[in-house]
Amino acid sequence: MKGKNLRYLNDNPNAMARTVRAGFLLLEHFSLPAFTQVLDTLVTANLLRPQLFTSRTFGMSDGEVVSDLGLVIRPDSQIDCAAIKDLDLLVICGGYRTELKASEELTGLLAKAAELGVNLAGLWNGAWFLGRAGLLEGYRCAVHPEHRPALAEFCKATQVSSEPYVIDRDRLTASSPSGAFHMALDWIKGLHDKALVEGIEDILAFEESRYRRIKPAENICVSAPLREVVKLMDANLEEPLELEQLAVYAGRSRRQLERLFREQLGTTPQRYYMELRITEARRLLQHTELSQVEVLVACGFVSPSHFSKCYSSYFGYRPSKEVRLVK
């Protein structure tokens, strides 16, 4: 279970990863949720492993840009060739009401970015602008359903997918905010490792991370009885339920419950329950001002020594050494 849990924080502190530079081009009426999903993912990655990413926002002019929610954003600067040369990733942020009209300036900048080897991404209908610049030939891409016909009309050599996101070599495209989030996660996993992605999920998508499997290669869905048991575990961290109680609530025998955990989550109920408790303890230590004693009580541990032993087993250091992220 050690590799399964949150050991993503500085797994190898001596390894110095190169900082990846991301730029976001905000088009008029861009999807603010899609943009923030990607940005929040990069920021959270930096929280777990500092200085992995930098980010800048750009506009086509030096003025403000209105998002799809009516919020006014002032980008860091106007995009130009000099700015593009400093990027590893350029994300074109479109939206439902973003006009499908690519100026010669924008088309030229995108072509220049591709020539320089910059990874290019499109959110919502951002793929349309990449296609308009001739940068999706021979690629698969994702675009919002409203704009698929428009993109397919002139991108004959492009496979326009109905998937929420597509990463095809150096092109990343997403058709929705949720797709943008998973696109960013998948991209980060390709740059770093699965452990970092699991850490980001634990913070930003806990509902999904609760059911993260130890054996991801096996495509097995979590059944309804098992989901119910996990929810019960999650709701009873301070006073953990006995396995027999969980089995009764799930309408299964103890042996059947153990088999469900083994087949679908690759572990035992006891170990999974411990992981939920120790993960919550780490979250409380990092993000609250609760004392160590208050945390161990809130997570169902009977003594400081037992808590310290379990914590060290999962994370490799005592809870007293945990980094507090609250001021």
Rank of each mutant, 00 (worst) to 15 (best):
K2E: 15
G3E: 14
K4Q: 11
N5D: 13
L9N: 03
P13C: 02
P13L: 09
A15D: 11
M16Q: 10
A22S: 03
L26F: 05
L27V: 00
H29K: 11
F30S: 04
F30I: 06
P33E: 03
T44Y: 01
T44I: 06
N46V: 10
L47T: 12
L48F: 01
L48C: 00
T54G: 05
R56P: 03
R56S: 04
M60C: 13
G63D: 10
S67V: 00
L69N: 07
V72A: 09
I73L: 10
D76L: 04
D76G: 14
D76I: 03
I79V: 15
I84Y: 05
K85W: 01
K85Y: 08
D86E: 15
D86Y: 01
L89W: 14
G94C: 02
R97I: 07
R97W: 14
T98G: 07
E99N: 14
L100I: 11
A102E: 14
S103N: 11
L106G: 08
L106F: 05
T107I: 09
G108V: 07
G108Y: 04
L110C: 01
K112M: 08
V118I: 11
N119C: 12
A121V: 00
G122D: 03
W124R: 00
G134W: 00
L136F: 04
G138M: 05
Y139K: 08
R140N: 07
C141F: 03
E146A: 07
H147K: 05
C155R: 04
C155F: 08
V160G: 13
V160L: 05
S161M: 13
S161P: 08
P164C: 12
R169V: 08
D170V: 10
L172H: 02
A174V: 05
S175V: 01
P177W: 03
P177K: 05
S178C: 09
A184E: 03
L185S: 07
I188D: 01
I188N: 04
K189P: 10
H192D: 14
K194G: 06
L204A: 02
L204D: 01
L204Q: 05
F206V: 15
R210D: 12
R212N: 03
I214E: 04
K215V: 08
N219E: 15
V222T: 11
A224F: 13
P225V: 09
V229N: 08
V229E: 06
V230D: 06
V230W: 04
V230R: 02
K231R: 14
D234G: 04
D234M: 06
N236V: 04
N236I: 06
N236Q: 08
N236F: 05
E238P: 00
E239I: 10
E239G: 03
L241M: 15
L243V: 11
L243M: 08
Q245S: 13
L246Y: 08
A247G: 10
Y249R: 12
R254L: 11
R254Q: 11
Q256P: 02
L260A: 09
F261A: 11
R262P: 01
T268A: 14
Q270L: 05
R271K: 15
R271L: 15
Y272W: 08
Y273I: 03
Y273L: 06
E275M: 13
R277N: 13
R283M: 12
L285P: 07
H287I: 13
S291L: 14
L296K: 10
L296E: 14
V297A: 14
C299D: 12
F301C: 12
P304V: 04
H306P: 07
F307L: 11
K309Q: 15
Y311Q: 07
S312H: 14
G316T: 09
Y317F: 15
K321V: 15
V323H: 13
